[in-house]
Amino acid sequence: MAIKYKVNEPITTDQFIDLLERSTLGERRPIEDYDCMAGMVSNSNLMITAWNDDILVGIARSVTDFHYACYLSDLAVHQDYQKLGIGKRLQALTQEQLGPRCKLILIAAPAANSYYGPIGYSQNDRCWVLEPGTQILTE
């Protein structure tokens, strides 16, 4: 099996949803909201994909300025293709697209939290999340 990696190869919303379902990341993404999923695909400005022939088997989907910060929003590998180094390669290829000062930033899924430290990430406890519908307190 020869996995091919592509930078910013167009994918369909259906391909993205299918991969998320087959990677278990779909459990933490709004896959039932097609418009949201379509927006996630169309508004990403850096996507590295992994392919086995014409089957999408992995993705690193990011939003970045390419110079200072790159938020790796989704890292997903099809369950049948996990433990083959595809996820690490997707991250390395993402990093290659970035400028020398650009940080790769992500929020780990609970089950994947221990994955990132051994491959070079440092943990940061200063991440904050404002959930949809929560109002910023101005007074």
Rank of each mutant, 00 (worst) to 15 (best):
S23F: 11
S23K: 02
T24Q: 12
T24G: 01
L25A: 12
L25Q: 14
G26E: 13
G26D: 07
E27A: 13
R28T: 10
I31K: 06
E32M: 09
E32C: 06
D33V: 04
Y34Q: 10
D35W: 03
D35C: 05
A38S: 02
A38R: 03
M40L: 11
V41K: 00
V41H: 06
S44Y: 01
S44C: 04
N45A: 06
L46A: 07
L46I: 09
M47P: 07
M47Y: 03
I48R: 02
I48L: 03
I48Q: 08
I48P: 11
T49Y: 01
T49K: 02
A50E: 08
N52R: 14
N52H: 13
D53N: 13
D53T: 11
D54P: 02
I55H: 03
I55S: 04
L56D: 05
V57Y: 04
V57A: 13
V57N: 11
G58Q: 08
I59S: 07
A60P: 03
A60W: 04
A60I: 09
A60E: 02
R61H: 00
V63Y: 09
T64G: 01
T64Q: 15
D65P: 10
D65N: 14
F66C: 03
F66G: 01
F66S: 09
F66V: 03
H67L: 12
Y68G: 08
C70T: 07
Y71S: 09
D74F: 01
D74A: 02
D74S: 02
V77D: 10
Q79L: 10
Y81F: 01
Y81G: 13
Y81L: 11
Y81P: 01
Q82R: 15
Q82H: 12
L84T: 09
L84F: 09
I86F: 06
G87Y: 03
G87K: 08
L90H: 04
A92T: 12
A92E: 15
L93I: 10
T94F: 08
T94A: 00
T94L: 02
Q95G: 06
Q95N: 07
E96F: 01
Q97T: 08
Q97F: 05
L98S: 14
L98Y: 11
G99Y: 02
P100R: 05
C102K: 02
K103I: 01
L104P: 09
L104T: 00
L106H: 08
L106K: 02
L106R: 01
I107H: 09
I107Y: 00
A108Y: 12
A112D: 12
Y115P: 06
Y115A: 11
Y115H: 11
Y115W: 15
Y116V: 14
G117H: 14
G117F: 00
P118T: 06
